[in-house]
Design a protein around this nucleic acid. Sequence first.
DNA 1: AGGATGATCGTCT
DNA 2: GACGATCATCCTC
Length: 199
Amino acid sequence: MKLARLDSEALPVETKALAKALLGCILVRESEDGKAAGRIVETEAYLPNDPACHAFSGKSSRNATLFGPPHRAYVYQIYGTSFCFNLSSECEGTGAGVLVRALAPTEGLELMQRRRGADRTRDLCRGPGRLCRALAIDRSFDGADLFLGPFLSLARDEWAPEIVRRSPRIGVTRAAGHRLRFYLAGNPYLSGPAALSPA
DNA sequence: AGGATGATCGTCT
DNA sequence: GACGATCATCCTC
C-alpha cells in the first residue's frame, strides 16, 4: 500500500482529538538495522490538569517535552525496564500528551522479532513497552520532531477507518474511570480488554 | 543520601 | 490472575 508521510498540520492539537486521529496512522522507524513499522491501534489521552498525566505536578527534566510544541515525541522509562512512546499535545506551555499503547505490525517483522526475542506477530507491539522495544525507541528520541528526521516518522496509507471504541485507561491509579483509552474495534493487537462502549 | 513510586513485562501457577 | 524484576525520577530529610 502507498505510504504518505504526515505533517503536523494534518493532526489535531487537542489531546482527545489527537488520540483518536492517531488511530490507523503508521509509525515508521528507520535505522541502520532496517525499517520497521506498524499501524497504531490503541492510544490513551493524558489531558491538561489530569492527575494521571506526568505533567500534572509541574515541569521537570523528565516531562519537559509535554510542555513544548505539539506532536513531539515524549519518551520516558518506566519500571526501569520499559520505554513508553507518546506525542505531546496542546499548545506550547500546556502539559499534555497521547500514549501509543499498541501497533499492528506492518513492516520489518523479522527485525522486530530479533529486537524483542519473540516470534508471535501478535505480541510484537502489543503494549507500550513492547512496541518501543520492537522499534528500538528509547529516551534519546525524547523531544524529537517526527516530521523532520528520517529515523522516526508518522505516515498514512489508503486504509479506511474502522470503528473507534473507548474504555478506562490501563494501569493508572489516579483519575481512574475516565474513558480516555481509544482503540480500533475488532483487531487482535490490543494491549488490554476490549470493552463494548462506542466512542 | 535515602525512600517511595510507577501510563510494564515476562514468568509462573 | 498473581508476583517480582529493576531503575529513572521525584520528594523528603
